[in-house]
């Protein structure tokens, strides 16, 4: 049970925002010491663990491709594509962006979006613009809701899209771990395929919630109007 101290160290280290690499390394060393390994065995375990985990960093092989198409305006092209959503309602703008985010992540283009790259300059202003067009004004409380939803669609689209692509860390971490520990032989593609049902479920669940978000906005505004009219009387 003493070895669980390592888990605790990870939790504390991440919580107080130490550099995660240091946290992971210290937690590993402490756990190994508690597990009865000597320093040479620990170094050895780090070395062999690291070399058998090399596949997790394979995403690097894709960077030259992403780099050159970014150089020629991939993100700008994606922005033009996203901007076509501008005529929709707030919830539908967000849903449209989520679909784009999820599909592009599923083919390995997860650098197309992101909070600094697309959400702040593009998705949030478009969703707020849609609300402004529909209702004429956007109170602070509604802005806050739209901001939260804009950040959320990026996360959900990315998480449940990227796992369908084979060269993603989570898939390769699974194959590395189970192949090393249990001497199985899993292909990353097998795992990626089984990520598809959850990807579809994520789109359906969150898509449904975004369409309801539009209805909730309609209700909020209707109520606010009734209240203002009531106050004037």
């Amino acid at each position: 049970m003493l070895v669980l101290v390592g888990v605790l160290l990870v939790i504390i280290g991440f919580a107080i925002r130490l550099n995660p690499l240091i946290v992971v390394t210290v937690a590993g060393i402490v756990t190994a010491l508690l597990g009865g390994m000597n320093p040479l065995q620990i170094l050895d375990a780090f070395g062999t663990g690291f070399s058998s985990s090399r596949s997790v960093t394979i995403f690097v092989a894709v960077l030259p491709l992403v780099g050159i198409i970014e150089y020629f305006g991939l993100q700008e092209k994606a922005k033009l594509l996203i901007a076509k959503l501008a005529r929709l309602t707030a919830g539908r703008v967000l849903l449209g962006y989520m679909v784009i985010r999820q599909v592009t992540a599923a083919v390995g283009l997860n650098s197309i979006g992101g909070h600094p790259q697309t959400v702040r300059p593009l998705v949030y202003p478009m969703a707020e613009g849609a609300a402004l067009r529909r209702y004429g004004h956007v109170p602070e409380a509604v802005k806050e809701k739209i901001k939260a939803q804009s950040a959320a669609v990026d996360n959900i689209g990315l998480f449940f899209g990227e796992d369908v692509f084979v060269a993603v860390g989570s898939i390769l971490l699974i194959t590395t771990f189970v192949d090393t520990t249990y001497h199985l032989h899993l292909e990353p593609l097998q795992l990626a395929i089984w990520a598809i049902p959850t990807a579809i479920a994520a789109l359906l669940i969150h898509g449904f919630r975004l369409l309801r978000f539009d209805k909730a906005l309609d209700r909020d505004y209707a109520k606010a109007t009734v209240e203002t009219v009531g106050a004037e009387n």
Partner: peptide
């Protein structure tokens, strides 16, 4: 990610 994988094996 690679370090977390290494940690998992060590754990």
């Amino acid at each position: 990610p690679q370090m977390l994988s290494t940690l998992g094996i060590l754990f």
